[in-house]
């Protein structure tokens, strides 16, 4: 059995990626299972989705604590202490990272010991779909890694997308992009023989839970609030940048920023708090003098 985990952010398409892969495996005649797991249902929040593919009936359910393959659709998650996308990856497993880095750079940057494949899926999405939606593309990459057929991938993309979009042209673009990603990962790049990936079963010991007084065991938090410490700006795809030559300091961007991330400097010019700006680009839409532009964020 192959167990895959997709890690992305709400809106990127991790869930759809897991469905595309599950459907493609199903069409290829395998037993398959796919499911999402998410907490806060909002754009930008970490999302995990999983797919199991097997020649035998699948006798597992729920989270995959020890995946064979991890697809990281947003590389900023690699530094998120709550997500830890690579955690539990089996000895000899594979990590595919959506990044502009080379595999060697990514391995070093994120201190990963497993085999790392990289592909700038975001760039492919922008080039071929015109937007940073990665669902079918990540599904295509995963289909190649586990060795599914190109034909089933194509049918799976059509089947899954026709349930959620009606734009025929966009659907065709997705098929093309998924196939492009499928072929971008040549089998020669995959050093690991998937079937040789072993299991690393850890022993669990059942304990008797000790009683603790309600001062401890009520679901209350006495510690001081720490929300401001959590920077929310690291998952931007584009960063807004100013051209102060044409900026009239009208402050419309300051008023329109939904997250209060536009501040004003000593000369009364607006600037972005990049630690928390999520890159929604509403400021660009709202600027009456077109003094804002966007630059793709590339983590380097």
């Amino acid at each position: 059995m192959y167990r895959l985990r997709f890690h992305g952010r709400g809106g990127q398409g991790a869930r759809v990626a897991s469905k595309v892969l599950g459907t493609a495996a199903f069409l290829d005649g395998y037993y398959a299972q796919d499911f999402p797991l998410y907490g806060a249902e909002r754009r930008g929040a970490p999302v995990a989705a999983s797919t199991r593919i097997s020649e035998e009936p699948i006798m597992e359910r729920g989270v995959i604590p020890e995946p064979d393959i991890v697809i990281v659709m947003d590389e900023t998650l690699l530094q998120d202490p709550l997500t830890m996308p690579v955690s539990g990856l089996k000895q000899g497993g594979i990590v595919l990272i959506n990044t502009a880095h080379s595999p060697a750079e990514a391995k070093a940057e994120y201190k990963i010991t497993a085999q790392v494949l990289t592909l700038d899926i975001t760039k492919i999405g922008l080039d071929m779909l015109g937007m940073p939606i990665l669902s079918t593309l990540a599904g295509g990459v995963a289909a190649r890694i586990v060795g599914l057929s190109e034909e089933s991938l194509k049918d799976a993309v059509k089947k899954v997308l026709s349930e959620i979009i009606t734009d025929r042209k966009l659907l065709d673009k997705n098929v093309a992009a998924a196939l492009y990603c499928f072929n971008a990962i040549t089998p020669a790049k995959i050093e690991i023989k998937l079937k040789t990936i072993g299991t690393t079963k850890k022993k669990s010991t059942v304990i008797s839970l000790p009683f603790e007084h309600a001062a401890v065991s009520s679901p209350a938090i006495n510690a001081t609030g720490n929300t401001p410490l959590r920077m929310t700006g690291n998952w931007r795809v584009f960063r807004p940048v100013w051209n102060y030559d044409s900026c009239t300091r009208c402050m419309i961007c300051v008023a329109r920023c939904p997250d209060g991330c536009i501040l004003v400097n000593e000369d009364d010019y607006p600037y972005t708090d990049y630690d928390n700006c999520k890159g929604c680009l509403i400021c660009i839409e709202e600027c009456p003098t077109n003094s804002l532009g966007k630059v793709r964020e590339v983590h380097a």
Partner: peptide, 17 residues
């Protein structure tokens, strides 16, 4: 001792898990 209101000692009740 564990659930009370004191402005100088804020607490969050019923945290999400």
């Amino acid at each position: 001792k564990h659930a009370f209101f004191k402005a100088s000692q804020p607490m969050a009740q019923s945290a999400a898990v």
